[in-house]
Design a binder for these strands. Structure first.
Lengths: 163, 163
DNA sequence: ACAATAAAGGTTATAGTGTAACATCTTTTA
DNA sequence: TAAAAGATGTTACACTATAACCTTTATTGT
């Protein structure tokens, strides 16, 4: 029996944020990538919750925080950097971005998404990855990346749903 | 050993189109859904190849075919109908739409996508679906739908790649 | 230390994707 | 055949993302 993912448990979210920022600094340090103040700020905003946020939502929060006007390229460039470094993932079905809890190793985008509360839970299943690899191989494809987005109701929203 | 998917083989594509249209008519008939001339035309355009097409590409082809101006809602409404009926799928990673080869039964969106030639191959693997269901259940989620997009190189593009 | 270079960020404009709202036309139903 | 429902036309706009160019900041070589 696997443990309930942290995003679904009550937890001290400040720890998530600090841990994500610390990992990001460490990884970028190793790689010679520059986690500038702006990029760190965007990463922190993405990590405000376990719910994916859109680029324009992030832009608005960035603008609130900085008293100066923030234009789309500012946030998109930061997001591109964070995506390249594997520090965040893009949820295609939502046009939104969410922090990656294990950026130290490259891995596919596999998410459970609650349509009610918006929470995103990253799956890390070797069996799932292998099944996908096998199917890809059977069709003769060379696999480069894969993205799985499962939509439904998280345990909380499931139990409070009465319609 | 599974057979090579039809989208990857040389084949008489006219048969794909006619078969898709015939299935669509039959299914809509059974369901009391109205496959109007416009909707059938959009479905036929989507089926022009096994490569997903964007809404605006479809809109342009529709405009070419009809001598009159075609606005976005025209094509989006047709696409919405076709999606509801399970006659096409949306590829989120590409903002594009592709015909469904087996619309008679509801099934998840599982695709192999070639980044070079654009071909989309729909996977129909019970093992894959079950693995996803198991992972979803383990996290306590109620599964509603799932979408898998595997990007890579199809057999043809793989063998002609020499960089 | 300093010029040359590279990288990051600012700014303006615009491209690409999708929908709201309302009018008109067609089909179905009573 | 009138009323209602469904489909399409039309205009305007919202949301998501990028191109192009300029300024600022950081890094590198000397």
């Amino acid at each position: 029996m696997t443990q309930t993912p942290i995003a679904l448990r009550r937890h001290n979210h400040g720890l998530c944020v600090r841990s994500a920022l610390a990992s990001a600094r460490a990884l970028c340090g190793e790689r010679g990538a520059r986690l500038t103040p702006l990029r760190a700020q965007v990463l922190e905003l993405v990590w405000q919750s376990h719910k994916p946020l859109g680029a324009y939502q992030l832009m608005d929060r960035l603008a609130e925080a900085s008293t100066r006007r923030v234009a789309p390229p500012t946030v998109y460039r930061a997001l591109d950097f964070l995506l390249e470094q594997g520090l965040i993932h893009r949820i295609n079905g939502l046009n939104a971005y969410v922090g990656c809890p294990s950026p130290e190793h490259r891995h596919p985008n596999h998410f459970l998404l609650c349509r009610a509360c918006g929470v995103a839970v990253e799956l890390e299943s070797e069996a799932l990855t292998q099944t996908i690899q096998q199917n890809t191989k059977d069709a003769g494809f060379l696999l480069e990346h894969h993205s799985l987005e499962v939509t439904g109701l998280c345990p909380d929203c499931r139990s409070s749903a009465h319609d």
